[in-house]
Design a protein around this nucleic acid. Structure first.
Lengths: 204, 204
DNA sequence: GCATTAGTGAACGGCACCGTTTAATTGAAC
DNA sequence: GTTCAATTAAACGGTGCCGTTCACTAATGC
């Protein structure tokens, strides 16, 4: 019933195109990437790309969606691990910052931000797949810590934001605008974040 | 001694070019802006632009420097105003967020971030003129509040970062990726920031 | 006057790339 | 084997824009 007559479209080629497109778009930029380039890299004819995706912009969107899909797996915080609350926070902060400060991620965010302006849906897709997902996951952790008596947090969503923001500090900005950030700087920010967070939210 | 022979270059035209370039670059983007467009808007011949700036990229850099120059004035925190420390923090947070969440500023940051990749000096110029300047200004305020006995902050630079980060929360991200942020949200984040900051740093 | 430099308008060469078309080939299903 | 659609290579039309050149005019110093 669902089968179309004729030669089926080659899914392997579709994936190859998406891979090549992701690499090119997120490494070189949207404007700096030509369809011909992507086609060559994917070992595919240009027309195939137009047949499957229709448009340069649509190809970009598809690449973003694929990348967001990959991202969805990363934000699972295990609420039931052992250790003091301080240790747990430290660990979570470290993991988060390690994930976010990868150069590819910095680059990826820059691209998405630039294209959000002409296609807001792209920005929203990213927010859904990344930051918001992480925020909710961490809020759930806080909620659990609340019920364990480790913390006393009223607004878990707000507190989740605050912890993430504290860990980033301005290292975020520095990286986005081309300054290297050392591991020592990162560690210092994370330690400071945990201190401040616990000063505000530790159970008495 | 310093005078060159011949007709002097028209500074008024130079400024007109920079104005037009700023508007075009930061509103439409670098790639989407053509020199011809800028020339027309500035009421100037294209050749004049090439004579004075040499290059499209150089024109962009000049526009960024000019914009950063404008920015330098904005970060002066009056350390000696009256009011409780809580009120002062609230006020500073509000001012900062109001300045940073203007749509033009969001856009400007997106452009700079995108071009930082190909010209790191641009990102550094921005960091110097904006975020770092603000950080130092606020750290000085914290230092003053320390000596007044209002706060007990060990690392004023780290604490300055933390306060700024707390105020932004994820509103920053939301805006960069195209989500509207309400004034209520902003107020909530600022209040939360002050609460957490004071919990960690208020003098006993 | 004259030399020198700045600015103008128009045109040009050149390049890169999008998106389409054409004609031919390949692969699956019936 | 026939039919239908996917795929391909090549070429094309079109666009947009950079950076340059040229001939000409305008302002300044001597």
């Amino acid at each position: 019933m669902k089968k179309k007559p004729g030669r089926p479209s080659d899914q392997a080629k579709r994936l190859a195109i998406l891979d090549a497109a992701s690499r090119a778009f997120f490494e070189d930029g949207f404007a700096a990437t030509s369809i011909e380039q992507v086609a060559a890299e994917a070992g595919v004819s240009k027309v195939t790309i137009y047949n499957q995706f229709g448009d340069k912009r649509a190809l970009f969107t598809a690449a973003v969606e694929r990348e967001c899909e990959k991202m969805r797996g990363y934000f699972c915080i295990d609420e039931t691990r052992e250790g003091t609350i301080r240790e747990r926070l430290q660990e979570i902060g470290k993991g988060m910052i390690a994930f976010l400060s990868r150069p590819e991620m910095i680059q990826f965010e820059r691209r998405i931000a630039a294209e959000t302006e002409v296609e807001p849906a792209i920005g929203h897709a990213f927010l859904d797949a990344g930051p918001w997902r992480m925020k909710k996951g961490f809020a759930a952790f806080l909620s659990h810590a609340n019920s364990q008596g480790d913390l006393k947090v009223k607004d878990t969503i707000l507190a989740a934001e605050q912890f993430a923001a504290l860990c980033k500090g301005m290292g975020d900005l520095d990286q986005r605008f081309g300054r290297d950030v050392s591991d020592a700087d990162r560690a210092k920010r994370i330690n400071g974040a945990v201190d401040v967070f616990l000063a505000a939210y530790a159970a008495p």
